[in-house]
């Protein structure tokens, strides 16, 4: 049935019913495609800004507050309002300082997730946000071994990808990261690299977490336990005493005697 029609295409296609196998397309169709492409090129950049990098640094202080700095590589049309993920619901907005964008404000979405809204300036510039967050860690409430817990999470509650995410979480001087309790993305048993590393920046210990692509709805998180770097002064004395006691109690073993 119709086999000969498929092989011998002699008739010209009907107006507007062109298929890739039906010969040369009508001129009006080519013009339409070219017009659509031109329109798309003209409209594209204005339809949404692009974020290629989202870096977040949290510097904890001994009073439990933290200085938060966001560095975002962002491009878009001047005057355009851009929404960015913002993982600091407790931020003191009176301290909010923004460079490289205008009219910053925090909006809270229906699910309770905050987003930072900024307007792009006439001249493109790297976006830098500074804000203070109070009461992030309760330093008065030390757990076993003097540990304190820091945890942070950020959900990309916007509709666009934020590109590469890099979070650096620095604890106060005089403290050390003890264990990494949880990270998202999590460490994979079969992956060659870990999503996090223990770092030291400006004399502060901390954790750096990376996510290659912070896509919409993706969550990054870290939970670390840290404690005072100083050891108990009793400990070296105890070791010395135990060693000396052994040498005295087992002095008969000296010289290879058993």
């Amino acid at each position: 049935m119709g086999a000969s029609r498929l092989v011998t295409k002699t008739e010209r296609p009907a107006f507007g019913r062109w298929t890739p196998t039906s010969g040369r397309p009508p001129v009006f169709l080519l013009v339409l495609v070219v017009l659509l492409i031109l329109l798309a090129i003209a409209v594209g950049p204005a339809e949404g800004a692009t974020v290629t990098r989202y870096a977040e640094e949290i510097r904890l202080e001994r009073d439990g507050s933290a200085a938060v700095t966001l560095d975002v590589d962002l491009s878009g049309t001047p005057g355009e309002a851009v929404r960015l993920p913002f993982g600091h619901a407790k931020a003191d907005l009176a301290t909010l300082r923004v460079a490289g964008a205008l009219a910053p404000r925090i909006e809270t979405l229906a699910g309770g997730l905050p987003v930072l809204v900024v307007t792009l300036p006439p001249e493109p510039a790297p976006l830098k946000v500074r804000v203070t967050v109070k009461g992030l860690v309760d330093f008065g409430k030390a757990k076993a071994f003097g540990n304190r817990v820091f945890s942070h999470e950020l959900v990309n509650a916007t509709t666009g990808s934020c590109g590469r995410y890099e979070g650096t979480f620095l604890i106060p001087e005089g403290f050390r990261v003890n264990t990494i309790v949880e990270t998202a993305p999590a460490e994979s048993e079969n992956a060659a690299t870990r999503p996090y590393e223990v770092v030291r920046v400006d004399g502060r210990d901390g954790l750096r977490l990376t996510e290659p692509s912070l896509d919409p709805a993706k969550r990054v998180a870290a939970k670390i336990r840290f404690k005072p770097a100083a050891h108990s002064p009793l400990f070296p004395g105890l070791l010395l005493a135990v060693g000396a006691l052994y040498l005295y109690r087992f002095r008969d073993l000296a010289g290879g005697a058993r």
Partner: peptide, 14 residues
């Protein structure tokens, strides 16, 4: 090892 100055990149537990 335990009382050595804390090296960068290594957690206290490590």
């Amino acid at each position: 090892v335990y009382f050595a100055p804390a090296p960068a990149g290594l957690a206290a537990a490590g």
